[in-house]
Amino acid sequence: MANIASQRIQREFQEVVRSEEVAKSLIAIELVNNSLLDLRGRITGPPDTPYEGGLFHLEIKGELALRQSCVTFTIVVAVPETYPFNPPKVRFVTKVWHPNISSVTGAICLDILKDQWAAAMTIRTVLLSLQALLAAAEADDPQDAVVAKQYKENPELFRQTARHWTYMYASGRRGEDRGHCQDFDAKIRRLQEVMRIDEHKALVALSSNNWELERATQALLP
């Protein structure tokens, strides 16, 4: 089984590398430590979305039946025995504000990574599906309830918040500021000064409280 999985992963890696999407810089995959057991994917934010211009990094894991635990590719000494019959475990390394992606852990709610996985699917399928998810959220089946609530109740504020997170974490803060809101920056700095907290904690508090400074301050109080 392990040999089958190893051959499959090697073939899929080559499929992604040679794909049209890689040529257009839409997706990418790389070996970490020059090992097929240690993979990292990357997708670009789709155009006409708050994620446009962002580069989002993904950690790709597999399951290994070893003492009933999940072991990442970076630790195991053999390829996952269950792949491709069970889906890979994928999470966003880049922080992102999206209803179907945890703003805390990067965990993803996507059907093909759960009960709708099929052995014919590939890593390329996963990367393209995640790019599509950024363009079309499923707020009724959220991974992050706070983000989903904002998405449904205040779509424009959600769009501005998601764009700000893209600017903060996925753009390298280089080049054109794609709709970056200076008022948001001012509120982040103010909350940092008042509460003596780091930038990310201030950003999360404000994002989760619709950028209302008083509400965010109250939420941070013990």
Results as ranks from 00 to 15, higher is better:
Ala137Glu: 10
Tyr151Asp: 03
Ser102Leu: 04
Ser103Phe: 01
Leu128Pro: 10
Lys114Asp: 13
Val93Met: 07
Gln150Asp: 05
Thr74Leu: 08
Gln160Phe: 07
Ile112Thr: 11
Asn100His: 06
Gly179Ile: 09
Val194Leu: 14
Ile101Asn: 10
Glu176Gly: 06
Leu133Pro: 10
Leu203Gly: 05
Tyr83Phe: 15
Asp198Ser: 08
Thr125Cys: 09
Pro88Glu: 03
Phe158Asn: 04
Cys109Glu: 09
Gln143Cys: 12
Thr161Asn: 04
Lys114Glu: 15
Tyr151Trp: 11
Arg178Tyr: 01
Pro142Ala: 13
Arg124Phe: 12
Ile108Pro: 05
Leu206Asn: 02
Asp140Glu: 14
Glu81Ala: 12
Pro155Asn: 08
Lys152Glu: 13
Tyr151Asn: 06
Ile188Arg: 03
Arg196Tyr: 07
Ile108Trp: 09
Lys201Phe: 00
Phe73Thr: 15
Thr166Trp: 01
Glu193Pro: 01
Asn209Tyr: 02
Asp111Arg: 08
Lys95Met: 10
Tyr83Val: 14
Asp185Gly: 04
Thr161Cys: 03
Pro99Asn: 04
Ala132Ser: 14
Trp165Thr: 01
Ser69Thr: 07
His200Trp: 00
Ala148Phe: 06
Leu133Gln: 12
Asn209Leu: 07
Ala107Met: 02
Lys89Ile: 14
Asp115Gln: 15
Glu81Pro: 13
Val96Asn: 01
Glu199Met: 02
Lys149Gln: 15
Met121Asp: 07
Asp141Arg: 13
Val71His: 13
Thr72Ala: 12
Gly175Trp: 01
His180Pro: 01
Pro84Trp: 05
Arg159Lys: 06
Tyr169Ser: 07
Cys181Arg: 05
His180Val: 15
His98Pro: 07
Ala205Thr: 01
Ala135Glu: 09
Glu153Pro: 12
Ala148His: 03
Ala135Thr: 03
Phe158Ile: 11
Ala148Gln: 03
Ala136Cys: 15
Leu191Tyr: 06
Val71Glu: 10
Ile123Asn: 00
Ile112Met: 15
Lys95Leu: 10
Asp144Val: 09
Asp144Lys: 11
Ser207Trp: 01
Lys149Ile: 13
His200Gly: 00
His164Asn: 03
Ala135Leu: 00
Val146Gly: 02
Met168His: 12
Val204Ala: 01
